[in-house]
Amino acid sequence: MIELTDVRFRYDASASGAFELRVDRLALGAGSRTAVVGPSGSGKTTLLHLIAGILTPVQGRVVVNQEELGGLPDAQRRRARLRSMGMVFQDIQLLDYLSVRDNILLPYRLGGGLVLDREAKDRAESLANRVGLGDKLGRAIDKLSQGERQRVAICRALIARPELLLADEPTSALDADTARATLNLVFELAEETGTTLVVLTHDPSVLERFDRVVHVDGGGVS
């Protein structure tokens, strides 16, 4: 499913000086649940962006779903991201001028060959119901709580039935109860759809729920 071999990535003009991420070998199976842990600035997000094809390595291979992302042009990497990957961000990042429904369906507006049909709309409703936002589909984003917003972001990440869900510290902006509920939701939905899960987290208390924990420290991955 995900295979990184002899990968090197460098930030030449990093604010804290030069930085290099090194991954000699990392393989994550389909349907697996992986936590990526490590201190701030260790390269966790860089690793996630390499897997998502947002960044390309200066050396080595990143293969996702039998496709080497480094060898693809930018447009195809974006298309792959839209079609087969869902992303949830630490700072949520919803579009404030779209309603809950429109935010969930946003990937269908961004090209990538996704077709916004009745099935997609029904799925948006079904996902919203599943996360307890069924009665708030037409609501503006600024009328939602932080927890509700993160649930919208999770629905957006899952709307196109991705094979891979990448979450960058999805609970760090939430209080403890909401964070727990949100993570439960991510696990439940991923399990229901068989989606491979890669979650960046700082919280050691949730690590036991993952199949595998990857440590990133000082640019090295183990």
Partner: peptide
Amino acid sequence: TAERRTLHLLGCGRWL
């Protein structure tokens, strides 16, 4: 800027 970054991360092309 944040909105454009979100769109980019989701897979939206710069041209769009």
